[in-house]
Amino acid sequence: MLNRILVALIGIPLLMMILLKGGFLLLLFVNFIILVGLFEFFKMAEIGGKKPEVRLGYLAGLAIPNIIYFSTVDNLTLIFMPVILLTILLIGKRVLQNKVENSSRDIGITVLGVIYISGLFSHLLLMKNIPNGGKWLLTIQILVWVCDSFAYFTGMGIGRKIFKRGFSSISPKKSIEGSIGGTVFTMLAIYLLNRFLGLFSQDKNIVIVLLVGFLISMVAQIGDLGESMFKREFKVKDSGRLLGEHGGILDRFDSMLFVVPVVYYLLKLI
């Protein structure tokens, strides 16, 4: 319990400052999360019997955020360059080694790790380049916390009372009632945050604001359950122990991995 409190007291203010400030500090943060996240994912995969190409995975994964940050051309297209080169290198290495067994499995898990962690999380750097990018990053993190917290409290209170099955195959403790509770409070939270931070232009209808909150909640929960799906497949309880009782980096940022890219593309559209 003490570990949880200390991590929260130090980590939350620091994270909020980094998201708002951006710049080189955000780049360092993104690189750190990607590096540790890749380590945790590849380690889980190895426990699950897979054999990812770890070194090439690290190289490609760390290339993505740094290319985005230091590039002066269309950043979106550059996300794919390290992934494409990684795929060519992985297949080429197998061909030169004359290896056949489990090639698609091991190449696939390596590329998946890079796209899942680095490709998704690097969107934090892209988000900072849009109007109110810092406010949006902070808002997304707050909404993820709201969704996760109220899904937990609602699930503890009335979970499995109405909908019996829930998400038992992926995460036995997650219930549909909890999911609904998290969604409702996320929609309420984005309405209040928009009034306070002015995230949307004044001509945007309240229905649009609430729909964005609904979408964020749905995607956040998919991100959370997605990581649980991998952990269950690899037969591990937590992605790591870096944050003590809070688990690993992926356990804390699984929802952000999904929500930031979705909101980025949504804001580009509207």
Results as ranks from 00 to 15, higher is better:
residue 7 V to F: 08
residue 80 F to I: 13
residue 104 S to G: 11
residue 138 L to R: 03
residue 92 G to E: 04
residue 192 L to T: 09
residue 153 F to R: 02
residue 7 V to T: 10
residue 151 A to W: 02
residue 121 F to H: 01
residue 197 L to I: 09
residue 242 L to I: 10
residue 103 S to Y: 09
residue 96 L to P: 01
residue 80 F to H: 04
residue 181 G to Y: 10
residue 218 M to F: 10
residue 228 S to H: 06
residue 152 Y to G: 02
residue 49 G to W: 12
residue 270 I to N: 04
residue 253 F to A: 04
residue 269 L to Y: 15
residue 77 T to W: 01
residue 134 G to H: 06
residue 130 I to A: 07
residue 52 P to M: 04
residue 108 G to Q: 00
residue 75 N to I: 10
residue 150 F to R: 01
residue 29 F to V: 03
residue 87 T to N: 00
residue 22 G to Q: 05
residue 32 F to E: 05
residue 89 L to Y: 08
residue 193 L to W: 07
residue 156 M to R: 14
residue 186 T to K: 11
residue 111 V to Y: 14
residue 111 V to E: 10
residue 129 N to V: 01
residue 151 A to D: 01
residue 175 S to G: 11
residue 134 G to N: 14
residue 122 S to M: 06
residue 202 Q to L: 08
residue 75 N to C: 08
residue 20 L to V: 05
residue 236 V to P: 11
residue 199 L to Y: 07
residue 93 K to V: 00
residue 209 V to L: 12
residue 255 S to L: 09
residue 65 P to G: 14
residue 150 F to L: 13
residue 45 A to R: 04
residue 238 D to R: 03
residue 229 M to Q: 10
residue 41 F to N: 07
residue 138 L to D: 02
residue 203 D to L: 05
residue 117 I to Q: 03
residue 67 I to D: 13
residue 46 E to V: 12
residue 180 I to M: 05
residue 139 T to L: 08
residue 210 L to H: 05
